[in-house]
């Protein structure tokens, strides 16, 4: 495949500590669909680290070219922002697509502002018919909105887990992009990484998780959940607020900043289903939700639901196993 036509889409890969992140391959799928609708080529960029190895892995179906920026070891937002902006100026794509990852949040808005591109962040759907229309969630995922952008080129960040990954081998051209950066002159420096939320419980291996959220209200009320866990032999996990409050060990946290879990059964109690939580548990085989708010977004992904007060439902459920 030759890559010398108009570039419809430039997508930027996401990697960390030597590994391409899953969102990179999902982004390829989103980008290819968009490039077909716009009518043009899909180019990818991979910046920093072992770019040659990354580029070979990113050479998947539908990618016309992968541009490598061989500067730096790890993500640094000054490097990413400058390299991405330079590539956009060189390639002149209709759409610049970046991941809505934590690192994406750390450079995409800077690139968009620097290049004066309108930015649609955290898109869960993209369509193009002479102009972009993006689907986004609002109000804690309770509402899905569509927004049209009357300007080109434009920038988009895409949510992880919304598009299937592309992994069939491709025929992309790999092109080193000459970009000189003096990292020592950058006004920001990445000093290292720290693992948090170790602990001795492995919620990722559990086949039945009872997961508790903000609905529990008070730390003392957790006794009720401990009783349920004991009665059912489940493993206890939680959403973020309980860990933030210091009520539960960080090792029990499910979600974007916690662990990804895929149990046979995930029983979510008093969990509203914020996107950051859902990112960690939507791969569960069967999801059961107990919540007193019938509009809670957790019911959008739950296979089974009980709309009701957990302080009534949980004691009744414990009784079923006594």
């Amino acid at each position: 495949m030759s890559a010398d036509g108009d570039v419809a889409v430039l997508g930027v890969a996401d990697h960390r500590r030597g590994e391409l992140r899953d969102v990179s391959f999902e982004l390829v799928t989103a980008c290819r669909e968009l490039a077909d609708a716009v009518g043009g080529e899909l180019h990818l960029a991979v910046v920093a680290g072992d770019v040659e190895r990354f580029a070979e892995m990113l050479d998947v179906e539908g990618v016309d070219a992968v541009h490598t920026v061989d500067e730096g070891e790890e993500f640094n937002h000054d490097l990413y922002a400058a390299a991405t902006a330079a590539l956009v100026e060189e390639l002149d794509p209709t759409a610049l697509v970046m991941p809505n990852s934590v690192n994406g949040l750390d450079y995409a808005p800077a690139v968009a502002n620097a290049l004066d591109l309108p930015l649609v962040s955290d898109a869960v759907g993209l369509s193009y018919d002479g102009g972009l229309e993006a689907t986004r969630e609002m109000y804690g995922s309770k509402v899905e909105t569509t927004v049209a952008v009357d300007e080109e080129p434009f920038a988009v960040t895409v949510r992880g887990g919304e598009w299937p990954p592309t992994d069939a081998p491709g025929e992309a051209e790999i092109r080193p992009f000459a970009f000189d950066a003096d990292e020592s002159a950058f006004p920001s420096r990445v000093l290292g990484f720290e693992e948090v939320g170790g602990g001795d419980v492995d919620i990722a291996d559990a086949e039945f998780l009872v997961s508790i959220g903000r609905g529990i209200e008070e730390e003392e009320n957790l006794d009720l959940i401990y009783d349920l866990v004991e009665a059912t032999g489940a493993t206890l996990s939680s959403s973020r607020p309980l860990v933030d409050n210091g009520w539960l060990d960080p090792a029990r946290q499910v979600g974007q900043s916690g662990k990804q879990v895929t149990p046979d059964v995930y029983l979510a109690i008093g969990i509203s289903g914020a996107v950051q939580h859902v990112a960690g548990m939507k791969g569960s085989e069967t999801i059961i939700a107990v919540n007193d708010d019938p509009n809670a977004p957790i019911f959008d992904i739950a296979d089974y639901g009980v709309v009701g007060d957990l302080f009534e439902v949980v004691p009744a459920l414990i009784e079923q196993f006594e």
Binding site: R16, R189, S257, G258
Partner: peptide
């Protein structure tokens, strides 16, 4: 900076 999956990045700006 709180990254995904229980990892934090230490940076200086």
């Amino acid at each position: 900076r709180e990254l995904e999956g229980g990892v934090e990045e230490l940076s200086e700006v």
